[in-house]
C-alpha cells in the first residue's frame, strides 16, 4: 500500500472516482447472484445425461422443430419490429398531432400487460371465429394456432423495445445534420438513408436485439395463440415446461442449455457487428 501511495502522483491512470474497488466488487457479486450462478446451474444440470444423452435430446426432431420455431419466429418478429418501431419512433419524435402523448403512453402497454392476458386477447382476435381471424380466413390465412400466430404474439411483446431505444436518440439528433445535407442538395430520401439512419443505427440494433431476446424467452402470450402442436407450433420454452411436467429435469435443462447457447451466440454476433460498424466517433 505504501508503495502505491508514494507512486500515486506519477500514476497515469489515477482513478478520480472514489470507491472503485468497492463498486467493482459489488457489481461482480451482484451479477454472479442474479445472472451467473443460475445460468451455471443450468449449464451443469443436463450433463447427468452424458454428452451423448444431451446431444440426443437436443437433436431430437421435436426439440429441433421447437428451437427452429422459437428462433425463427423471434427473428421475423424482431425484423417486423425494427421497421415498425422505427416508423413509430419517427412519427412520435418528428410529427406534431393531437393525441401524440396518448400514443406515446400506449407504446409501453405490452410491457405492463401480463403476457397471458395479451395472449388470450390476441387469440380471441385471431382465432378462426374472431374478428380478425374471420377476415383473414377469407384469404385462406390461418393466424391463430399456426406459426403465424407465434410471430404475431412475439411481435406484440417485443414492440416497445425498438421504439424506446430509437426515440431518445432521434430526439437528440442534431437538426443541423439534416439541414447541412439539405443545403448540400440531398433530397429527403438521401437525408434519411445517408444521414439520419446511420446516426441512429446503434440504437436501432440495440432495440432489435432486445426485442429478439425478449421474443426468444417469451412464453405466456405464445402458448395461448400457438396451439402448441408438437413439431408444428410448439415453442422451445413451452417444450421445457412440458419436460418439467414429465419430471425430466435434465431433459428440460438440455433444451434450456441449447437456447442459452444459441441466444448467446446470436447476441455475441450482433455485438461484433455493432463494433465492426461503429465509427470512431459514434460514441461521442
Amino acid at each position: 500500500m505504501s508503495l502505491a501511495v508514494t507512486s500515486a502522483p506519477r500514476r497515469r491512470n489515477a482513478r478520480l472516482l472514489p470507491g472503485f474497488q468497492l463498486s467493482l466488487g459489488f457489481t461482480v457479486i451482484y451479477l454472479s447472484l442474479i445472472v451467473l450462478i443460475p445460468l451455471t446451474a443450468l449449464i451443469l444440470r443436463p450433463w447427468e445425461l452424458g454428452v451423448a444423452g444431451v446431444w440426443d435430446v437436443v437433436t431430437s426432431p421435436r426439440v429441433l422443430a421447437a428451437l427452429k420455431l422459437s428462433f425463427g419466429a423471434s427473428a421475423i418478429a424482431a425484423a417486423i419490429n425494427a421497421v415498425m418501431g422505427l416508423i413509430v419512433a419517427w412519427v412520435l419524435v418528428r410529427m406534431q398531432f393531437p393525441g401524440r402523448r396518448l400514443l406515446d403512453a400506449l407504446i409501453d402497454l405490452p410491457f405492463a400487460l401480463p403476457t397471458a392476458v395479451a395472449g388470450i386477447a390476441l387469440t380471441a382476435l385471431y382465432a378462426p371465429n374472431g374478428p380478425i381471424g374471420l377476415w383473414l380466413a377469407e384469404f385462406g390465412i390461418r393466424a391463430a394456432y399456426s406459426p403465424l400466430g407465434v410471430v404475431i404474439a412475439l411481435t406484440f411483446v417485443g414492440f416497445p423495445f425498438v421504439v424506446r431505444a430509437v426515440q431518445p436518440v432521434l430526439e437528440d439528433l442534431d437538426s443541423g445534420l439534416e439541414e447541412a445535407a439539405f443545403t448540400l442538395g440531398a433530397n429527403s430520401w438521401q437525408r434519411t438513408w445517408m444521414v439520419v439512419l446511420p446516426a441512429i443505427r446503434p440504437a436501432l440494433i440495440t432495440g432489435v436485439s432486445l426485442a429478439f431476446a425478449r421474443a426468444v424467452g417469451e412464453y405466456g402470450s405464445v402458448i395461448f395463440i400457438a396451439g402448441n402442436l408438437p413439431l408444428r407450433t410448439e415453442i422451445a420454452p413451452l417444450l421445457i415446461v412440458v419436460r418439467l411436467e414429465e419430471y425430466d429435469y435434465a431433459g428440460a435443462a438440455a433444451v434450456g442449455l441449447a437456447m442459452l447457447s444459441l441466444s448467446f451466440l446470436i447476441l455475441l454476433a450482433v455485438n461484433g457487428f455493432q463494433r465492426l460498424m461503429a465509427t470512431p466517433g459514434a460514441g461521442r
Binding site: 443541423g176 447541412a180 443545403t183 444521414v195 446511420p198 446516426a199 443505427r201 465509427t279 461521442r284
Partner: peptide, 16 residues
C-alpha cells in the same frame, strides 16, 4: 441555389 453553408457546430456527418 448552390448555397454552401457552414454551420456553427459544423454538423459534420460523424459516421462518414
Amino acid at each position: 441555389r448552390r448555397a454552401g453553408m457552414v454551420f456553427q457546430h459544423y454538423a459534420l456527418f460523424r459516421h462518414m
